[in-house]
């Protein structure tokens, strides 16, 4: 009897382990077909994507709005009338509030109120990635801070952690608030956090980010690790700033502020 029992327990144990492992596999991810996954061949590759925004070249409201419109259209970003529910991927904010720690006085005329184009900084040491309890926000190998809407539990820890206010939460169903739908890109469900994704889907198709494309040269985009890249060359030639560098987050969005040029 006891022998049988031991035997049985062993068997039962193995079964349980089997089911457990199977279950874990199911949950983690199991390959079901004899197939392979690869980066898209036509996709743009980089070790560290980065962006340089040359604010000197932004002169009119249209210069900003065109980009915002392009971005928000492509990604089906809703526009809520209620400020509390706002979702923003790319937006503008005056210099004073974009760089609040730069409490410099006596700046060139107009700089203080000059709009700055803001978006996710895709930080190297992204606090949002650090705090996310489910790896719904994570770093891609190309430096992009990505967001998996399927996994996000909507705890909004990332929103509290992001020092740049780059993250938005879907407080209600966004669909009714999308004026014009881009059928190529999904929307989000209520209860998840979203933000600029550096147009990761466009990069895989060999396209540059929407705002970069729409900016017609006002924004540069490239590989920060590549010394010869356009962005590196541009950064080497111009004085740039990043938002809140003292926090050690290492943003990948650089601003060329300039000064004195005519403003809006």
């Amino acid at each position: 009897m006891s022998m049988d029992r031991r035997e049985f327990l062993k068997l039962a144990g193995l079964t349980c382990i089997g089911i457990g492992v199977g279950g874990a596999q199911l949950l983690v991810r199991s390959r079901i077909a004899s197939s392979e996954y690869a980066p898209a061949a036509e996709g743009l590759q980089a070790n560290r994507w980065a962006m340089v925004i040359d604010l000197r070249k932004f002169r009119t409201e249209e210069d900003y709005d065109k980009l915002i419109k392009a971005c928000h259209y492509i990604h089906n970003v809703p526009s809520f009338p209620d400020k509390y529910h706002e979702v923003k991927w790319l937006w503008k904010e005056d210099f004073e509030h974009s760089f609040p720690e730069q409490k410099n006085r006596y700046l060139p005329e107009g700089i203080e109120k000059k709009p700055v184009l803001l978006l996710c900084n895709h930080c190297s040491n992204a606090p949002c990635v650090r705090v996310c309890p489910t790896k719904a926000t994570f770093k891609l190998s190309n430096g992009i801070t990505a967001q998996d809407y399927h996994r996000c539990i909507g705890c909004r820890f990332c929103m509290a952690a992001c020092p740049y206010g780059a993250r938005s939460f879907n407080w209600v169903d966004p669909r009714p608030y999308i004026k014009e739908v881009n059928p190529e890109f999904p929307t989000r469900t209520p209860g998840v956090v979203e933000k600029c994704n550096f147009c990761v889907e466009r990069l895989s198709e060999g396209l540059r980010p929407a705002c970069v494309e729409a900016s017609e040269g006002k924004i540069l985009f490239g590989d920060l690790r590549d010394e010869g890249s356009e962005v590196r060359r541009y950064l080497a030639e111009n004085f740039s700033m990043r938002r809140k560098p003292e926090l050690g987050t290492e943003p990948a969005v650089f601003y060329i502020i300039g000064g004195g040029e005519e403003h809006v």
Partner: peptide, 12 residues
């Protein structure tokens, strides 16, 4: 696609 940025599927 989302997590590994591998958007090319090579079927069997």
């Amino acid at each position: 696609a989302l997590r590994d940025a591998k958007r090319d599927y090579v079927n069997s």
